[in-house]
């Protein structure tokens, strides 16, 4: 009860001023959304993943802001007045920060374009930057409206360990939005591993693969299988960072998927 009142008081204090002034983000997706929405100097640290160009669209900005590794002690010593976390944040970390009196705000994952719009609004609200969020939102809507219509090829992603995207994922949403017809929708694949045999038999017209690491791994070896190259399907490579997170930049990824 005391904790609830304290949290409420913190919320009210936040609302009364122009928004939190020392914000730390500990999730790749909240990192990037916060970098878009935050005012100058408002964001003091983002997660180290945001500085990895393989995963982040804003690696350079993240490097300039400074990175954290998501540990409670490290975060607490930054004296933040708001911590932004994703839905999969380490439970113990969030719990401890809350106990120490740090306000933690969890932004849910985005699996659809509607989710992205919602998260932009949530972020504007959390940072006290509603006007900036509105701006981003209208630009996003304009980009979405300007997307060209693509041909309805039967398509799927295929990644390391034979993972193919399921129906309720952001990549599925992006591919549908690009006019593609999703293999997962046709055969009822809910995500996870799809045997190479099944992929071949399903006869996709477009196979979208992701980023590869420089050193080999057996997990990725399936992407070099001769049966995959022999498939009568167009191959397209989309960098993982393009759709790991629900960001307005997803429109660029969708555009690259349009056939």
């Amino acid at each position: 009860m005391v904790r609830l009142i304290a949290a409420l008081a913190l919320c009210l204090a936040g609302a009364a001023s122009a928004g939190p002034s020392r914000v730390v983000s500990i999730n790749l997706c909240t990192d990037q959304l916060a970098m878009l929405v935050a005012g100058p100097g408002q964001l003091v640290s983002v997660s180290w993943l945001a500085a990895d160009p393989a995963l982040s669209l804003m690696a350079e900005e993240a490097g300039q802001i400074g990175v954290n590794h998501g540990g409670a002690e490290e975060i607490y010593l930054m004296r933040p007045d708001l911590v932004l976390a994703g839905p999969y944040a380490a439970h113990a970390t969030v719990e401890m920060l809350t106990r120490l009196g740090v306000q933690v705000r969890t932004i849910p994952a985005a699996n659809t374009i509607a989710d992205i719009r919602r998260n932009i609004t949530l972020m504007g609200d959390a940072l006290g930057r509603e006007a900036r969020a509105e701006e981003i939102l209208s630009a996003f809507d304009a980009d979405l409206a300007a997307l060209p219509e693509g041909r309805p090829l039967l398509a799927t992603t295929y990644a390391a360990n034979g993972l193919a995207n399921g129906r309720d994922t952001l990549s599925a949403e992006a591919m549908r939005r690009a006019g593609l017809f999703l293999l997962a929708d046709r055969i009822g694949h809910s995500g996870g591993k799809m045997a190479l045999e099944e992929l071949v038999m399903a006869g996709p017209e477009l196979v979208v693969t992701g980023s590869r690491y420089a050193t080999p791994s057996r997990a990725e070896a399936v992407l070099d299988h001769p049966a995959l190259s022999a498939l009568q399907a167009e191959r397209l490579s989309v960098a993982d960072r393009g759709w790991i997170c629900g960001l307005p930049a997803l429109t660029g990824t969708i555009r690259s998927l349009v056939r």
Binding site: A160, A214, S217, A219, H225
Partner: peptide, 21 residues
């Protein structure tokens, strides 16, 4: 440096023929 490699110990110790060509 490949994060997938770290989880491949099981394959090397237990063996598998999945997706061999």
């Amino acid at each position: 440096p490949n994060p997938f490699a770290a989880s491949e110990f099981v394959f090397w110790m237990m063996g598998s023929l999945a997706d061999r060509s």
